[in-house]
C-alpha cells in the first residue's frame, strides 16, 4: 500500500478512535449523574446541581456533599484504576486470565488489614486502608522480585503470573487462618471481601487519589513500550526497548492503581479482568488507546453497578462487587460467545 492511500486511512482510524473516546466519556458523565441522583433518597437533578455549586445546608445538600459525591468520585477513581490496571496486566503477562489482583495486591491488602485488626487492634477505616495499601505494595514488590529472579534477564509473563498466584495463595491462606481465629477480623473481612464503595467519606478519596493519579501517569508512559513488548521480547529489544525498564514501570503502575483501589474498596479485581476484554474490540491492540478506553469503561461500569446495587434490594444495598459480578459476568460470557475473542 502506498503512502498516499495509507494516510487517509490512518486519519479515518484516528477519527473513529476519538469519537469512541468521546462517547465513552459521555457514558461516564451519565453514570456520574445517575450515581449522584439515585439512591434510597432520590435527589432531583436541579437540587444536585444546587448542592454542588451553591450549597445552603439543606438535607439534599448534605446527602449529596457528604455521601453521594465522595462515593461517586471514589467509584470513578477505582473504576479507572482497575480498568487501566487490568489492561496493563493482561498486556504484560499476555494472559487473558490476568487480573489486577495477579500481583498479589488483593491478598496482600487483605492480609495486612486483618493482621492490623488482630495484632494492633486497629478499628478505624482510614487506618485499615493505610495497612491495606502497604500490604498491597509489599506483596506486589515481592511478586515482581520473584518473577524477575525466575525469568531470564527480566520477569517473563509466565514466571510473573505463577509467582503472583503462589504469593496470593500463600497470603490468602494466612488471611483465612487469621480470620478463623478472630471473629472481629472475620466480620470486617467478609464485608471488605464483597467489595463496596459506600460509607467511605471524602477523606478516603483524598487518601487514595494521589496513588491512583501517579499510577495513571506511569500507565500512559508505559503504553508505547508495552506496544513494542506485545510483538515479543526479541522484536521489542531490536526496536530499542529496554525490556526490564518497561516491565518495571508497568508493574509499578499496576501496583499503585490496583493497590489503592483494592485497599479502599475491597476485592473488585474482577472488573479489571473483564473491562479490557470489552475495550479491546473497540480500541484494537494499541495500548495508547486500550488503556484510556479500559479506564473509562471501568469507571462507567463500576458506577452503574453501584447504582443498581442501591435500588435492587431496598431497604438495604447490595455490595457493588456482587452486582458487578452478577451484571458483568453474563455480559462478558455473552460477548465471549458472540464473537471470536480478540487474542492477546
Amino acid at each position: 500500500m502506498s503512502a498516499t492511500t495509507l494516510a487517509p486511512r490512518l486519519h479515518g482510524i484516528r477519527h473513529r478512535r476519538i469519537t469512541v473516546l468521546l462517547a465513552l466519556l459521555a457514558a461516564v458523565v451519565v453514570a456520574v449523574v445517575l450515581s449522584v441522583t439515585i439512591g434510597s433518597k432520590p435527589v432531583p437533578l436541579g437540587d444536585a446541581w444546587h448542592a454542588l455549586t451553591a450549597p445552603t445546608g439543606t438535607e439534599n445538600d448534605l446527602v449529596i456533599r457528604s455521601l453521594r459525591l465522595p462515593r461517586t468520585v471514589l467509584g470513578v477513581l477505582a473504576g479507572i484504576a482497575l480498568g487501566v490496571a487490568g489492561a496493563l496486566m493482561q498486556g504484560h503477562t499476555r494472559n487473558p486470565l490476568a487480573d489486577p489482583g495477579l500481583l498479589g495486591v488483593t491478598q496482600g491488602a487483605a492480609f495486612a488489614m486483618v493482621s492490623s485488626i488482630i495484632l494492633l487492634g486497629v478499628s478505624n477505616l482510614l487506618v485499615y486502608i493505610w495497612f491495606g495499601l502497604a500490604g498491597a505494595l509489599v506483596a506486589s514488590v515481592a511478586v515482581f522480585a520473584l518473577g524477575m529472579a525466575g525469568g531470564r534477564g527480566g520477569p517473563t509473563p509466565v514466571t510473573l503470573a505463577l509467582a503472583g498466584t503462589a504469593v496470593s495463595a500463600l497470603l490468602a491462606a494466612l488471611t483465612s487462618a487469621v480470620v478463623l481465629l478472630d471473629e472481629q477480623a472475620m466480620d470486617v473481612f467478609r464485608f471488605w471481601q464483597a467489595g463496596s464503595i459506600s460509607a467511605r467519606g471524602a477523606d478516603v478519596v483524598w487518601q487514595v487519589a494521589p496513588f491512583i493519579l501517579a499510577g495513571l501517569v506511569l500507565a500512559m508512559v508505559n503504553a508505547p513500550g508495552l506496544n513494542a513488548l506485545s510483538l515479543g521480547e526479541d522484536v521489542a529489544r531490536s526496536l530499542g526497548q529496554n525490556i526490564m525498564w518497561t516491565r518495571t514501570i508497568g508493574v509499578a503502575a499496576v501496583t499503585l492503581l490496583s493497590g489503592a483501589a483494592v485497599a479502599a474498596c475491597g476485592s473488585l479485581a474482577f472488573i479489571g479482568l473483564i473491562v479490557p476484554h470489552l475495550a479491546r474490540p473497540l480500541s484494537g491492540p494499541d495500548h495508547r488507546w486500550l488503556l484510556p478506553y479500559s479506564g473509562l469503561i471501568g469507571a462507567g461500569l463500576l458506577l452503574l453497578a453501584d447504582v443498581i446495587g442501591r435500588v435492587v434490594a431496598p431497604p438495604g444495598e447490595l455490595e457493588v462487587g456482587v452486582v458487578l459480578a452478577l451484571m458483568g459476568a453474563p455480559f462478558f460470557v455473552a460477548l465471549v460467545r458472540r464473537r471470536k475473542p480478540v487474542r492477546l
Partner: peptide, 11 residues
C-alpha cells in the same frame, strides 16, 4: 465469568 458470579454470590 461464571466463576466470578459464583464467587461473588458466595461473598
Amino acid at each position: 465469568g461464571v466463576s466470578a458470579v459464583f464467587t461473588n454470590v458466595k461473598f
